[in-house]
Design a protein around this nucleic acid. Structure first.
Lengths: 149, 149
DNA sequence: ACCGTGGTTGATACTCCGTCTCAATAATGC
DNA sequence: GCATTATTGAGACGGAGTATCAACCACGGT
């Protein structure tokens, strides 16, 4: 059933029985170039030849196939990243939007505790950690010495 | 500076120097009756006399004052609950939307680990646990025996 | 090489959640 | 009672995403 793990987004799409059309190629290429995250509108802006609907459809497709995952910024802004492993969590830079993974799923520990306490059934979870990434942090420090707006 | 903890939403609003107008009263009353969560649109629907903008404004106000907190469903649907303690997390029933708290912030444990690993600075986090609450679970079981669909 | 099928596309309308605008209104201080 | 100011509400607007639907083009079969 599992026809060898897909190594690229292209392979993932094809293995799932979807056609690898030109617009999709373009989107996949762009996405692959932004391993630390992108927004759907960014893709739209950078691929004016491709229709908005197609961009959203393709992102949704990748989402459904588990090839990318969706994150939510502190303000609710959605953002997508390449999904390297199965289930994992991210840190999301509130300044530049860069995402990074953290596998160490200590989250499971919480869930175990919770499972014991909860009468219901735990179906899933979402965890987002908001950070200021090293690069942005540096900029912050450089800038803050000057005029405070 | 902290002028005695507010015990009701009303007090919270007044202590923050905001007027306790009739529309606000109505919203606060309604919200207080739904301790396990509500959506802005639900409030709008149940208070047709009150304008949509006012509902959203009031919810935002409560949010800013920390009197309610915002949750995000698995599909991204926003939902609000009364915020009893300072910082805490919820379980959110994917069926009925009922929210429950879990104080035990084992989350801190994750953050500690992460803090050691991350070069950047951790600013905040969000954790949502999706459950099927006991009531819905029961219904599920009762229903599932009958006609599927 | 040609054709038919149906998965895809893209323009556009629409939804949902929420914010902004702005004139009208209500609450408060004096 | 009046002026000041916060607040309201209708509706326009915005971002994110979905639905519609005719046109299209990728692919398998012949």
């Amino acid at each position: 059933m599992v026809t060898s793990e897909p190594h690229t987004l292209q392979e993932g799409i094809e293995q799932a029985g979807h056609r690898l059309t030109y617009p999709r190629q373009a989107i996949l290429d762009l996405v692959a170039q932004h391993p630390d995250g992108f927004t759907a509108e960014e893709v739209c802006a950078q691929l004016p030849q491709v229709g908005r609907a197609t961009v959203y459809r393709t992102v949704k497709l990748l989402l459904d196939l588990g090839l990318v995952c969706k994150m939510t910024g502190p303000d609710g802004a959605p953002r997508y990243t390449l999904s390297v492993a199965g289930h994992h969590h991210h840190t999301l830079c509130v300044r530049c939007g860069a995402a990074a993974d953290f596998q160490r799923c200590t989250v499971d520990l919480i869930l175990q505790t919770l499972r014991a306490e909860t009468a219901g059934v735990i179906l899933g979870h979402r965890m987002e950690v908001y950070v200021l990434c090293p690069r942005c942090l540096e900029q912050e420090e450089t800038t803050s010495s000057g005029s405070p707006t």
